[in-house]
Nucleic acid binder design. Sequence first.
DNA 1: ATCCTAGGTTCGTTCACTGAACCAAGATGT
DNA 2: ACATCTTGGTTCAGTGAACGAACCTAGGAT
Lengths: 175, 175
Amino acid sequence: MALGKDYATQECSIARALEIVGERWTLLVVRDALYGVRRYNDFLVHLGIPRAVLAARLQLLTTEGILEKRRYQESPPRDEYVVTDRGIALWPTLRSLGLWGREHFSETQLRAFRHAACGTELGPYGECPACGTVVPLPDVEMVPGPGLDPDPTNPVSRALLKPKRMLEPIETVPV
Amino acid sequence: MALGKDYATQECSIARALEIVGERWTLLVVRDALYGVRRYNDFLVHLGIPRAVLAARLQLLTTEGILEKRRYQESPPRDEYVVTDRGIALWPTLRSLGLWGREHFSETQLRAFRHAACGTELGPYGECPACGTVVPLPDVEMVPGPGLDPDPTNPVSRALLKPKRMLEPIETVPV
DNA sequence: ATCCTAGGTTCGTTCACTGAACCAAGATGT
DNA sequence: ACATCTTGGTTCAGTGAACGAACCTAGGAT
């Protein structure tokens, strides 16, 4: 976290983690990356984040090894940001944070996460109650919940209305 | 998060959660509260946080039902901030965030968490590998790890050097 | 009468976030 | 040939939050 002083005096790995992902917007960028968002403009329209801040966050997440900048076409040269294993490792944190937000501050469920192999909704720790194992993120399927706006204006939210695997790139359909 | 605009456009319980606990310092205050820190001055010296910011965070966490302001003596009137169930519910999030920070950005283990009943170190989801159950926070014992400064200057860090139960108030010994 | 403690508030400075404008390289349309 | 569009940014003035030092208050203690 970069507001003048950091948390350096904190002898604590939570503080270390927050130095990296504790700034405003950062965790939402990672969340979107786990959802399959990869491109600058998709982050931009989905998050409603100022362009300069997005550029700074993508830069920082890349240098910290949470995202990886990767050329996906040569002409014109275009890069996408793909989440790395280090970013995927943030999934339990984001999952439990979202669970907390839903249980304490939300009325309806916005998204559900299921074990793609058997369709069972995940338990609080990301485990499949039916299979009894913790489901790796590529095997998690995200499905829209009842509280989600059925007709969002931006194409990224529309792409995220369809059930999809986590990490799989989103398919934005131009109008 | 209160920087002009909020995350209101985000239809996501992660964003809701971050509106509450996503501001700078907030999660560290909650962490300290779970560790057993309860008093204004103890938060102050342990976190090195500006006084005004601490007052604002304690206020917000209280109105959001994460901490509870409670009079602990009448003369002179003194209040302490005790973490509520809603705050305790943030433990899985903080635990996984700390685990991520340690695994990816830290060399040594700073603190270990054990099942007080059997002494077994907790697994990644806060479960006791020996007992096979998720350990409720009052039954978790925090013990200092090898990476911790053995002779910190402030009394709160000194109090946290001793193994102790989570949530139990810290015992600061005046010099 | 003075000092100390706990828990704040006030205030000027600094710094990050915001939003709008601008920029650039390559593709595409006419 | 020229303008326009798309993608992925940078620049910049204005604003609001964080910082840290100083100050304040109520009640004990010396």
